[in-house]
């Protein structure tokens, strides 16, 4: 279905450099990142911490400027937006943060947190409509009794409840795209599913597109139709989530999958030892070359440290960047 409809987001060859303090060389947090996002669909972005996942979300949220590449939202380049354009964009693209304890202002009530987006984006005609609207939102995200919850301060809520408040904010705005940066990572395992189900509901009922950032393949499999695997700012493998998990091609994806607990793997101990074998994760800079995974890769070849392999199509919707699969590779 996705290949026929037009993507909401189309990102091509995105590069993001962060200047280093006192040095001409900058950290390259994103290098040659390309993907498309379609409505009503979730794309998981998976990778260890430091792989640039949050940076993608922050660039798409206009919190950072891109360094190079194309960022098209509904066929319009977003960098260079100003004033009203930014406001209109924010009305469509929202973000959920990893840390539910940090993303709500401790001095304001839940009511304030939901009233602001409604007022900024004129989702209510007058302030009189606010209470009803806010209570309805709280009920929709399962925070009942809504009237009581609205009066509470963030510290009176659990992590899961706070994350539901953040989801309610995106609902209040009526965003078409939600960039969810590890929304369940800080939560207890027992309440993750509830939050994921709520996002699932938004996807189905409101046709919201999700970029689901996580380092947890199990939740990606549960929630996202497609998955992109990131390593040190590079997309190394992407495709339908099932294909990625059942038939991982890149050695890094294989490593990630071996780190997922039980049902997916059998020989836990052996594979764990493989996981810690060579843990030198490079810091990528503008002048770095080769495949970033080469230091940890058990299949590493000479050419791996000389250039980044091109994209290889494994199947209709499954792609990888690795010399093992490059026609010229073996």
């Amino acid at each position: 279905m996705s290949s026929e409809s037009k993507p909401i987001f189309s990102v091509k060859k995105l590069v993001k450099d962060f200047p280093t303090a006192g040095g001409p060389n900058s950290i390259r947090a994103l290098n040659d990142v390309s993907f498309e996002l379609f409505s009503g669909e979730a794309m998981a972005v998976v990778g260890e911490s430091g792989s640039g996942k949050s940076t993608i979300a922050r660039v798409l949220s206009l919190l950072h400027d891109k360094s190079a590449g194309d960022l098209n939202f509904k066929e319009t380049e977003i960098s260079g937006f100003s004033g009203e354009e930014i406001k209109r964009y924010r009305q469509q693209v929202q973000m959920i943060f990893q840390d539910p304890y940090g993303s709500l202002n401790p001095v304001h009530t839940i009511y304030h947190h939901l009233a602001r987006p409604l007022l900024i984006h004129k989702k209510v005609k007058s302030k009189k409509e606010l209470p009803d609207k806010i209570h309805a939102l709280l009920e929709e995200v399962g925070l009942t009794p809504a009237v009581e919850t609205a009066k509470k301060f963030p510290f009176e809520l659990s992590g899961g409840q706070r994350q539901r408040v953040c989801i309610a904010k995106t609902l209040a705005i009526g965003a078409d795209v939600v960039l969810a940066d590890e929304p369940t990572s800080a939560l207890d395992v027992s309440i993750r599913l509830g939050v994921l189900n709520l996002m699932q509901k938004m996807k189905r009922e409101h046709n919201v597109a999700f970029m689901y950032i996580t380092h947890d393949l199990a939740t990606a499999r549960y929630f996202a139709e497609r998955t992109a695997v990131m390593y040190v700012g590079h997309m190394v493998e992407w495709g339908e989530t099932e294909d990625i998990i059942q038939d991982p091609q890149h050695p890094y994806t294989q490593l990630l999958i071996s780190a997922v607990p039980s049902p997916l793997k059998r020989h836990q101990k052996e594979e764990k030892s493989l996981h810690v074998k060579n843990k030198d994760i490079p810091t990528w800079t503008a002048s770095s070359v080769g495949c970033p995974f080469v230091g940890r890769c058990i299949h590493a070849m000479d050419k791996c440290s000389q250039s980044m392999p091109e994209i290889t199509k494994i199947s209709e919707k499954h792609f990888v960047r690795c010399f093992l699969h490059d026609g010229s590779g073996q």
């Binding site: 929202q94 973000m95 840390d99 709500l104 602001r116 953040c166």
Partner: peptide, 11 residues
């Protein structure tokens, strides 16, 4: 993050 969040909702 709540400051970033406020920016993202358009404050």
């Amino acid at each position: 993050e709540f400051v970033t969040a406020a920016e993202v909702i358009g404050e």
